[in-house]
Every structure is written in C-alpha cells, then in structure tokens.
Nucleic acid binder design. Structure first.
Lengths: 210, 210
DNA sequence: TACCGTTGTAAGCAGGTGCTTACACAAGGG
DNA sequence: CCCTTGTGTAAGCACCTGCTTACAACGGTA
C-alpha cells in the first residue's frame, strides 16, 4: 500500500539506474555510493528518518539495498553522512545578519533544485524519531543558534538566538510539514517582512527592513 | 532492548493494575477504558504517536492489549479519543488575549500533574507520523490559530495568527523535544517576556507587559 | 445448580523493518 | 586458463508492528 514499492525489482542487470543521462556506468562503487546518498537525501527530506525505509532509498537509487549496508554500514550512519554532507554550506557562506532571512526563505521556497539544502526540512520531519536522531539534529541546531546569538548584544544573546531559531523551525513546521493555511500559501516576502519586524526587538543586529 | 517490555506479563489475575490505591476493581469495563486512555495519553505525550506502541500502552495500563482493540477499535481511534478528551478545555477556558501566554507557559512548565493538557506536546512528538495524524493535528492547530488571529486588526490577521502559533510550537519543539540549551533550562518568565515583546508588533491585541 | 453474557487472557497472524548471507557476475593478473 | 578481488543480486533472518482469535474466568440470573 505504499506509493512506489518495488518497481525497479525485475531488471536484467544494472542497465539504467537513474536518469540514465550522464551515469551509464556499470560497476562503480563511488557512483553508486553517491546515488544512494542522493536518494537518501531526498527521501529523508520527504518523509523523515523513520518513514524513509532502506528499501525505498535503495529502490530510488536503482540499487540493491544490500549495497546500502556495504557502503554505509547502517541506516543511521547513512543519515549521518546525509546530514554532514550538504548541511553546513549555507551556514558558512551566509553572513550572520542575513542567515535568518536566507534560511527562512530557503524553507518557504517550494520548487527547489536537486542540490538545495533541505537539512532543516529533514530535521523537522525526523523529530519524532529515536533519541540518537534528536541528538544529531541538536548539533545542527546548535550551529545555527550560535550564529544567530551573535546578532544580539544582550547578555542573554544565546537565549535570544534559540528563540529566533525556534521561530524559524516552527514556521517550517507549520508550513512545510503540517501545511497550515493561510501560512502554507502565503507570499514569502510577506512572511519574511512580518517576522523580520517582530524579531527586530529580539535581535537588534538584524537588518532593519528586509 | 526497549525500556520496559513486558514486566506486567506473568501476573496471576487482575490483582493490582496501577497504583492500587482507589481502583482495586476486578472486572469493570469503564475503569479499564479509562486506564487505557490515561496510559495512552501519557505515552503519546512522551514518545509521539508512532513510537508509543499498543503493547506499551496496554502494559502501562496493566491491561491486556486485546482490550485496547475491544474498547477502541484501533490505535488511531484511541489517539483520536485522547486528543478529543483533554484537548480543548484550555482553548475554551482562556480569553484570547491570554491564550498565547497560557499555552506557552503550559509548555514551558515541566512538572505537570497527571491531568495537565499535553496536547501540544503530543502534536510535536507525532509530527513525523502518518498523514492522517498530521491532518488530525492540523485540526487543533486551526483552533488555536483562529483564536490568535482575533488579536490583530490587520487584514492578514489569520497569517499573523499562524506565525504566532508557529513560534509557540517552535519553542516547544526546541525546548521539550530537542532539549536545546540554553532554551531548555531558561526561566519561563524570561522566555515569556522576550517573546511577548517581540510579538507586540505582530498582534497588537496582546497585553503590553506580561 | 445450570446457564450465559461480559470481561480478561494467551497465542498467533500477516506484514513491515533493518540487516545478513550465500551466491552470480565482471575484470584483472599470474 | 584459473584464481582473486571487487561489485551487484536474491533470498532470508530475527524482530517488531497493529490487530485477531480461540478460550478461560468471573458474576449475575433463572
């Protein structure tokens, strides 16, 4: 009763794995590793950690699921690599005072390219999972909050950073995961403006009018 | 490898189900129903919908798990009854302009009695679950957001209400579920004050200094 | 006492999960 | 050629899940 169970099952030999354009290799560990990593990244973002099964990940990669365990050892380790891979570029390449708006708009945009950073989305959809997952997610949260904390000169800057991050994730939660209207269909510019104005009193380091 | 698997298994006959003080009944459908409802309420709040198994719920109630299905039909129906039971009193008994602060403090308080309203916590921990669950949770969210929307006279009041609710849930997410520091240990009064000040520009109907 | 509906129990079913194992190819070197 | 090594595959294992079923024990009634 799942949406796409096994449609890749009966295939003669590795002839067309995914897209089929540039790849077309037949026995290449590096490439299959990346295929698995990409598929896992997508599925974790779409369904969260628990609901993305290793069978689905392997099927989307067009690869036997046993290879997933050969190359990554366990589902948790694969999750770790996914989170470590694309997670932190946005964090490093964005100046602190723009981070909130960039992250917010990243979550508000729907049609995103295959390389987009969906780490926050993965976090939101995986919250209910095991405690180890929650711990892994706390790591990413710490990095974001640390940067946001620098935007306040108050002595409780860290707490203010946490609160800003909480809002960011809460908005993503309601919009992307829950699909609450009218937030889910709201214009990103409007949301960004409303939130930015309200956050002004919390983080005085934010730009005035975004 | 779970925390408490079966410790109630080998018991002669229903002699001491839970607490043992007032109950002490032996064959009472109404009472076992409530035992199951209470246990489910606790476990859903602690672990979310998916991770709270019917076996664990029945074990905590000190009841055979088959009775769960006799009295409720399915796990989802039990979840529905739990959400419907204690969910909306807070919503109805609290004036709109105080709702945000009351709900926020309810989530910030840790030592809460057995009758406390943990509906929002249940929501947060169950987000990753099936789509039906997400839909059920959207219902509760709608009710909260609807009330919060009345606090703004702007034409996009509904969106502002959604944003306020998003912050509320985001804070609960980071504090209760993720355990992000320093937010997790922060003084509720401090949190309430910071958030209240920032929200002033979003919902002008909020009390000035809380 | 004999009966019978209600309540409680143990065992099991079908299906899904992460993960493992035994084996079929391909390619390269001796 | 055979043998080894790396890659891909199918089948299965052990366990957990929600849920069902066949049966035992209780308690009131006739």
């Amino acid at each position: 009763m799942r949406e796409a169970m096994q449609e890749v099952a009966a295939r003669p030999a590795g002839e067309a794995r995914r897209g089929g354009a540039a790849g077309e290799h037949r026995r290449d560990a590096q490439s299959t590793r990346r295929l698995l990593l990409d598929a896992a990244s997508e599925l974790f973002a779409e369904r969260g950690y628990e609901r993305a099964t290793v069978r689905d990940i392997a099927a989307r990669a067009g690869v036997n699921q046993a290879l997933l365990f050969r190359y990554f050892g366990s589902k948790k380790a694969l999750f770790g690599e996914v989170m470590a891979r694309g997670g932190h570029e946005q964090l490093r390449s964005t100046p602190a005072e723009r981070l909130f708006d960039v992250a917010l708009r990243g979550m508000l945009a729907e049609g995103r390219g295959p390389g987009a950073d969906r780490s926050l989305e993965v976090c939101l959809r995986s919250i209910g999972g095991s405690d180890e997952i929650a711990e892994a997610l706390r790591g990413l949260g710490d990095e974001y909050a640390e940067v946001l904390a620098t935007l306040s000169r108050a002595e409780d800057g860290a707490l203010r950073g946490d609160l800003a991050l909480s809002w960011l994730l809460g908005i993503g939660l309601m919009r992307v995961v829950v699909g609450k209207e009218p937030l889910a269909s709201a214009d990103p510019n409007t949301v960004s403006r409303l939130v930015g104005e309200a956050l002004g009193s919390l983080l005085e380091g934010l730009p005035k009018t975004e």
